[in-house]
Simulated assay, not measured.
Amino acid sequence: MPDFPTAKVRTSLTVPLSFTDGYSVEAKMVTFEGLVDGREHLAVVLGDPGLSPLVRLHSECLTGDVFGSARCDCGSQLREAVERIAEQGGVLLYLRQEGRGIGLYNKLDAYALQDDGLDTYAANVALGLPEDARDYTPAAQMLAALGIHTLDLLSNNPDKAAQLRSLGLDVPTRVPTGVFATAQNLHYLRAKVLQTHHTLPLAELSAG
């Protein structure tokens, strides 16, 4: 049995999505009641999820998702995920976990410390915050409410798969995302590989 409280679907409606590069797709957006953290997380169902859907847990990143910040790869990952999930069938969970759970203002404070040479994890710690404060219990609740118990996870982050498995979900495959390196985010991406073992090819992230 799942090791978390049950949640239920609150609202489900169809929304046409359109991206600045011309890609468009129809999605079903789902809201929930009973999520353990009380936040307004959102499920975006794309295509036909089937028996083993492709799922991405995407943490909200205002700077990357909305403003196209080159300091991270979040906006590019979001755009890629929507198309790949629509092709295979599955769900994108848009989780309100700005800054790996520390919030927008703290994330921008951490950016300032990164400008002084700290990596993204050390900057969080210097602010007296966890390296990564995210708890994926609400994601597990959302998937269960959608009737999803087995999934392929679209992620470079082994912690996401580990947490879902610990909560009773079956995650047989973790599918890596693309590499979206820029001159501005190389230090950030390398830190993710070295500190939290993200499956990104380190050779492609050379500062040279």
Score class of each variant (00 low, 15 high):
residue 89 G to R: 07
residue 62 L to H: 09
residue 106 N to F: 05
residue 88 Q to P: 06
residue 117 G to S: 01
residue 95 L to E: 10
residue 30 V to I: 07
residue 163 Q to R: 10
residue 138 P to Q: 04
residue 70 A to M: 15
residue 104 L to W: 09
residue 191 A to T: 03
residue 61 C to H: 05
residue 78 L to T: 08
residue 112 A to W: 12
residue 187 H to A: 15
residue 71 R to E: 04
residue 171 V to I: 08
residue 144 A to N: 13
residue 6 T to M: 13
residue 9 V to D: 08
residue 33 E to C: 07
residue 3 D to R: 15
residue 46 L to W: 05
residue 83 E to F: 12
residue 152 D to N: 14
residue 94 Y to Q: 06
residue 135 D to F: 07
residue 114 Q to R: 08
residue 15 V to G: 12
residue 74 C to I: 02
residue 181 A to G: 11
residue 176 P to R: 02
residue 205 L to M: 07
residue 20 T to L: 14
residue 7 A to Y: 00
residue 29 M to A: 13
residue 149 H to N: 13
residue 202 L to T: 05
residue 42 L to H: 01
residue 141 Q to G: 00
residue 168 G to S: 09
residue 40 E to I: 12
residue 71 R to L: 02
residue 7 A to G: 07
residue 43 A to K: 02
residue 116 D to E: 15
residue 39 R to H: 02
residue 43 A to N: 08
residue 113 L to M: 03
residue 29 M to Y: 09
residue 116 D to Q: 15
residue 148 I to N: 04
residue 53 P to N: 02
residue 5 P to K: 08
residue 55 V to K: 00
residue 114 Q to L: 01
residue 95 L to H: 08
residue 140 A to P: 05
residue 128 G to N: 06
residue 180 F to E: 11
residue 8 K to V: 14
residue 32 F to P: 03
residue 108 L to A: 14
residue 44 V to H: 12
residue 111 Y to G: 01
residue 59 S to Q: 00
residue 200 L to Q: 06
residue 202 L to D: 04
residue 101 G to A: 05
residue 104 L to G: 00
residue 178 G to S: 08
residue 187 H to T: 14
residue 103 G to T: 09
residue 182 T to I: 12
residue 105 Y to G: 14
residue 154 L to V: 05
residue 13 L to D: 13
residue 165 R to H: 03
residue 177 T to S: 13
residue 68 G to V: 07
residue 198 H to L: 04
residue 83 E to I: 08
residue 95 L to T: 10
residue 104 L to A: 12
residue 193 V to A: 11
residue 153 L to V: 11
residue 207 A to M: 15
residue 157 N to E: 08
residue 157 N to I: 06
residue 179 V to Q: 13
residue 75 G to S: 10
residue 101 G to V: 06
residue 169 L to M: 08
residue 97 Q to D: 01
residue 195 Q to P: 11
residue 127 L to N: 01
residue 148 I to K: 04
residue 165 R to K: 11
residue 70 A to I: 13
residue 6 T to Q: 15
residue 93 L to P: 04
residue 170 D to I: 09
residue 198 H to E: 03
residue 128 G to Y: 01
residue 147 G to V: 09
residue 75 G to D: 10
residue 137 T to W: 06
residue 42 L to W: 03
residue 159 D to V: 12
